[in-house]
Design a protein around this nucleic acid. Sequence first.
DNA 1: CAATCCCGTGTTTTT
DNA 2: CACGGGATTG
Length: 793
Amino acid sequence: MTDALFSLPTAADDDLLRGLNPPQREAVEYRGPALLIVAGAGSGKTRVLTHRIASLLRSREAWPSQILAITFTNKAAGEMRERVEQIVGDSARGMWISTFHSACVRILRREAEQFGFTKAFTIYDSGDSRALLKRLVRDREADSLGLTPAGVQSRISKLKNELADAESYARDANMSDPAERKFVEIFGDYQRELQKANAFDFDDLIAQTVFLFRAFPHVADVYRKRFRHVLVDEYQDTNHAQYQLIRELTRPIQGDAGGGMVFEDAPGASLTVVGDSDQSIYAFRGADIRNITEFERDFPGARVVLLEQNYRSSQNILDAANSVIRNNFDRKDKKLWSDQGPGEQIVGFTGYSQHDEAQFVADEIETLRRSGVDYQQMAVFYRTNSQSRALEEIFIRAAVPYKIMGGTKFYDRAEIKDALAYLVAVANPADEMAVRRILNRPKRGIGDVTETAIARFAADNGMSFRDALAHPAEMGLGPKLQKSILHLDAVLREATAVLLPASGEPAPPTAVTEGLQVLLNKSGYADALRMSRDPQDEARVENLDELVAVTREFARNNPEGTIVDFLTEVALVADTDDLDDESGAVSLMTLHTAKGLEFDAVFLTGVEEDLIPHRISANEPGGPQEERRLFYVGITRARKRLYLSLAMTRAQFGEVTVAMPSRFLQEIPSLLIDWKQSPGDVNSRGGLQSRALNARRPGGSAGDRWGVKPLPAGGGLKPKSTAMEKFPGLVTNKVRDNGDLELAAGDRIRHDDFGEGTVDAVTGEGAKRIAHVRFDSAGAKKLLIKVAPIAKV
DNA sequence: CAATCCCGTGTTTTT
DNA sequence: CACGGGATTG
């Protein structure tokens, strides 16, 4: 490839291309209708994308307002905007850099009136839509047909991702099946309820935008004309609806004389997509990997650029990543390489329990810290959110500063949802769910009966549930009830006056904060919590204070922001603690959240069968392969140091279960891993590897599978087991259960491996009772009583 | 109508 | 284990 292929670099382009390798340059400079950048992990994809945008702006090929860049997370969007601004300064303003969902909300708010919604529509999160479906399933007595709210929800979500609606689904469904008929009924009801409530669920945001564009071509043309350059990041994770949205946006404009607006014919916007099919980890949410694998077919004449050089990780880490992902079939072979040298070995550790594992992580973090690595350059990953608990417990005890990324916890709390429901009740009074939610919070003595009476009155008089609150006297209710309903009505009115001034003037920046305070204080909600004796309610008050602080922060960042903008932000921006607090803390997050990020040191924890790959994925088509990609994503986040850890036992649902090392560990060449404690060193019974197991395959290539180093001779143990197939699986099912064994300090016990010893103390409860034992010859050990191979003497 | 208790249940990833 | 739902009681 020679430079002559490219346009001559101008002076302005020069610094945009400096330091880029040839494919990267091509990705920045190519101009044409469609460009696919296949970007392996760490190949400088964000740099290429930002420089491409900067180059379009610098060369005056595009105004900022003509650029639409779509990322997968808000965080990625924020980062991209920041980096583009660093290069081109203020002229970056006016670009749309956002997630699919945010972009669609923006469009929908603008066009809502076209199809029976208002600008103030509510966005239902999955909890909201499940609540609605729960009611519908109950009302329709669908549970007798085996339909559950969660099941219906996930089916509806999948259908919407395929752009199907109740009618189109019904055409192909087997309508002689009563369960199918019922499902179609509920789907239709659900959609009508959403419409009535002036609300969209997450999937609607995309699907309804596509429908809008298709139903109103003149509306679509406005956006087609506006966005001349559409760039999509993480393209491998787009679903069908998102794909169709892109298609609609990049369709050529046909002169239209009918819709009131007249455009000249124009070619479709230029489309740039970036992705890596090896990092596709959202199939569970409808992502269709074919969108990227068939890009060239979908967009004939598309240019494809491959970025394979990795600038992030050391070669050892890349080797591990390559050797794992190689096991996925039907993928295009792609090998990441680096010129950074091998770097450190990967460190492996097998803990006895998840706490043991967490302790190892905490210790290593402190060691790294002392050697000069900042906390913010370290991250701990796990497969499931629940795994963060054990880590947190140990980190708190070890005084390791940490922050949990992602995780919607804050906005999932009941008191926060209540407070937001109050705001929604003001912003979008049509949202009956929100009004019903706050009806009896705080306790006003309004139960099912009264709620139904209000609903009936509203229906009988053709008014909304919200408006019915002004007429309790006409419902035949007791005086106390009437009074409290009127009070609620008055509070909502007062807040409405603050948040949505009738004068038509924009509300001041402080409006959201004030409105929320009015709602919380005058409704009695805050007082009820403050008066409560429940110690948890104290924390709830603090959470509400934090929410008020969030509104202040919002006002600072968005002086023009309205209540609707605020609600949009909290609905779509899940992580509360993102960019601003670089306070020097270790980041904890799920593997999914980790995508797109990078750290000097990465701890990948819980590398066990049934966790990664997750048990549930085993039966799903493509499940295990997707789990492998997830593992691959985790590995490739690390720049210099990678730690892989697991535990031999894991507490789940209050039960201690035995865990097996993940199959993915076997896919990494043992030379790459330095096991501080290998799965062969520890067994599920709390001791070292038992003789019985080793006896089956004495000698041989001790530990090569796990890269086990010989133990410093002690206790006269034989070489450890080598291959997984004879190791944990066999132990697993034969684990003993001493659940009822009573032990107390002073008792003498015998251990299969350690011999006899004296119990010093017993700590913990139930299945987690731990005996602290001083063995006569093996020294002090801690044993989980439930599973240790011990007996009283 | 509210508070309490008991039982069963499910158990992944996220905009 | 943690949560929600249902039944029971005040």
